[in-house]
């Protein structure tokens, strides 16, 4: 993302209209530039007062001890030291979040791609099915569905009864440290509709000739999937992967509600953002919470950059290179 933006900004600077030397630019252009800034003023105010300013402020607060009532006290690196070396709950939340992301994102994308392949047929009703599969993505972020989840996976819940048919008796999954996070992961996977719709759009772009050529060469369905479909949709896969990982790291509502607001039994579903919330808004340790937020930002940025870097090795852009 940043690279695209930079490239664009460079391109546009080249065509920037008003050279310094020109003492009096044409009247219309000046008017327009003025109008542009007037129109942009809501965004400018928002960007400076609600984004840049707060970002810098939280960077400052990360190095302070601040409880919202007394003035912030500069403590240097103390918050980070405590976070990295003394806070077991912090590391637990990191671990829980990693587990959550590493399990839920691949499974969610696999489900999304699988169903997208199933729906990628010129058949009657695909539009309806597409919408139906997408619906959970809209509903899943709500407290309502998280509450349903708590009941479904709770004691005497539907899932427990269902597993009982196979002789598996776990009891209430949401109340056991071993399983609580699994239920949150299940809720995330349930919302595979949004990446599925994006995959479908990508699948539509794969030219039919490629399949025909592959079929003529004697490639079966499996071979055609791995040699044609998968390489052709790697750009979409990258897009979905980046978006889902960023989302997974910031996931909150499901874990909050399913874990009864505490992060589940013995912190087993204490996602990073949940812990940040507890530190900031239950304990009023705003400095510590700000430090946590900045670590999150840096980690997300690093992961995004690494994904884009690695993409040179595995993302195939048709129209470039080997074609």
């Amino acid at each position: 993302m940043p690279t695209i933006a930079q490239a664009r900004s460079k391109g546009e600077r080249a065509e920037a209209p008003v050279p310094e030397a020109q003492a009096r630019p044409p009247r219309r252009r000046r008017q327009r530039s003025g109008a542009a800034y007037v129109f942009l003023s809501p965004w400018l105010i928002g960007a400076s007062l609600l984004t840049v300013g707060p970002m810098l402020a939280s960077l400052y607060l990360a190095f302070t001890d601040y409880d919202l009532f007394n003035t912030p006290r500069w403590v240097g690196l103390q918050n980070f030291e405590r976070m990295f070396t003394q806070d077991d709950r912090y590391w637990n939340s990191v671990w829980v979040t990693l587990k959550f992301a590493l399990v839920s994102v691949p499974l969610k994308l696999a489900a999304a791609l699988g169903v997208a392949l199933l729906l990628n047929k010129p058949r009657r009703g695909t539009g309806f099915y597409r919408s139906a599969f997408y619906a959970p993505s809209l509903l899943g972020a709500s407290v309502s569905v998280a509450l349903v989840w708590r009941s479904l996976f709770g004691s005497n819940g539907v899932v427990d009864d269902f597993l009982g048919i196979f002789g598996i008796h776990i009891g209430s999954m949401v109340d056991q440290p071993r399983y609580a996070l699994l239920t949150v992961i299940a809720l995330a996977i349930w919302q595979f509709g949004a990446p599925m719709v994006i995959f479908l759009a990508g699948l539509k772009q794969v030219p039919n000739e490629l399949y025909e050529a592959a079929a003529l060469d004697g490639a079966g369905p499996v071979r055609r999937f791995f040699s044609v479909t998968l390489p052709m949709i790697t750009p979409v896969l990258l897009f979905n992967l980046v978006l889902e990982i960023i989302q997974a790291f910031q996931s909150f509502t499901g874990a909050f509600v399913i874990g009864s607001g505490r992060g589940g039994p013995s912190d087993s579903a204490l996602l990073y953002t949940l812990y940040l919330y507890q530190r900031g808004f239950n304990n009023f340790e705003m400095g510590y919470a700000s430090a946590m937020a900045w670590v999150l930002l840096v980690v997300i940025a690093i992961i995004t950059v690494l994904l884009f870097r690695s993409s040179r090795k595995w993302v195939f852009y048709a129209g470039e290179g080997t074609r």
Partner: peptide, 17 residues
């Protein structure tokens, strides 16, 4: 460029201020 960059910004960084 800045506007595009903020699409990816996690809300938590601006939350407390």
């Amino acid at each position: 460029a800045f506007m595009i960059a903020t699409i990816m910004l996690p809300h938590h960084v601006v939350l407390i201020p």
